[in-house]
Design a binder for these strands. Structure first.
Lengths: 197, 197
DNA sequence: AATAGACTATCTACTAGTAGGTAGGTTGTC
DNA sequence: GACAACCTACCTACTAGTAGATAGTCTATT
């Protein structure tokens, strides 16, 4: 039945997410999913014939979710937007074992199927463009320092956040992460804005 | 023979490094090494009985190399030290396919053997301590802003650099990386030091 | 309303290939 | 002849993916 079908498909996708973000593309198998969900491996293949299909679907879902999220925060000011962006990342590791899709999949990049590589680039570019847009807008408003290189700053933000998630898995200190987000934002601020010397 | 033995052992270790930094611990096999070096898989096991042994040896070597490197730069000023630290990272990706051991192995962390996990933590802590020491020293000298949180700043530096290497593999723009290093350093500087507003 | 045909979701049982690892034999050098 | 460095040949465990069967459900035609 349709409802049941969707439920199973969704369940598989949820489990896949968990596994991708903890163990990576090549670190989980359909067998792992099978054992978690309690149906046979062949039945997972029925829903997602290839592993590629499953992971591709997951990444596409993430892109859509990010676009929805960016609509939700569109009326907030630029500082708060970046703050929310950081919190979104932080929330990923609530249970201390997941990192972000970009951090995981870009580490594995050369061993990913081509199709998945392309999707990973899609996801990255979506987030980077949003960051660039937010930073540019903040500079125009006079909240962020005008001498910032927009692209580099976006890269610094995204790499620091995804790197921090990995550190969290090892060191476990969510407060440290929050501090880093603040540190990052203060880095963007006009020097006389809040914590200028 | 001793000389030949060491040559082969070193060759294996070099190939392992290449493979670890491009494909990750679970992304390469003894078969890959065998095909590159041109001796049989069983002979690789003769030199490094377990994959764990091989990778453990590699990480320990990295720790030693880092300590040697830090001695080499010990007489430079703190800004230059950080600059060299960045360049050391940048050099890793000269051919655009390698990332840093910390970046790779911390992504895979939960699927690594326990022994290797411990070593990864060793390596990370070695580099973080060096960074903390350098930052603290720079603050004491009055070169770096005194309101910096030393630990967080060290984390930001190391995660940004390792994250940037991954981005480089995808976007390929080493100049961007150099720019980011400069950006990071300027973030540390006292606000009136060089590029104050 | 009965029924035939198709569809969904699952199963068991399999393939071909690769992984890490080992036992035991061969070869070349001191 | 001892031993280091290599080999062949194997093992077990796991991988992604496929083939074919089946129980239950939905749908269209009579």
């Amino acid at each position: 039945m349709n409802v049941k079908e969707r439920a199973t498909r969704k369940r598989i996708l949820d489990i896949a997410e968990e596994l991708i973000l903890t163990r990576g593309y090549n670190g989980f198998s359909y067998q792992d999913i099978s054992e978690t969900i309690g149906i046979r491996k062949a039945s997972i293949h029925y829903h997602y014939p290839l592993k590629e299909n499953l992971v591709d679907r997951y990444i596409r879902k993430q892109i859509i979710l990010f676009k929805m999220w960016s609509k939700q925060v569109r009326n907030k000011d630029n500082i708060e937007k970046l703050n929310q962006f950081g919190i979104m990342y932080l929330n990923l590791s609530r249970h201390g074992i997941k990192i972000c899709p970009i951090g995981m999949l870009s580490a594995e990049f050369p061993v990913l199927p081509e199709k998945i590589q392309t999707r990973v680039i899609n996801l990255m570019e979506t987030e980077i463009q949003w960051l660039e847009h937010t930073i540019t807008s903040g500079i125009r408003e006079g909240v962020f320092a005008k001498q910032l290189n927009v692209h580099r700053t976006a890269l610094i933000i995204i790499t620091t956040l995804s790197g921090m998630l990995k550190m969290l898995r090892i060191h476990k200190d969510p407060n440290e992460m929050k501090g880093v987000i603040q540190e990052l934002i203060s880095f963007l601020l006009k020097k006389n804005n809040k914590r200028g010397e």
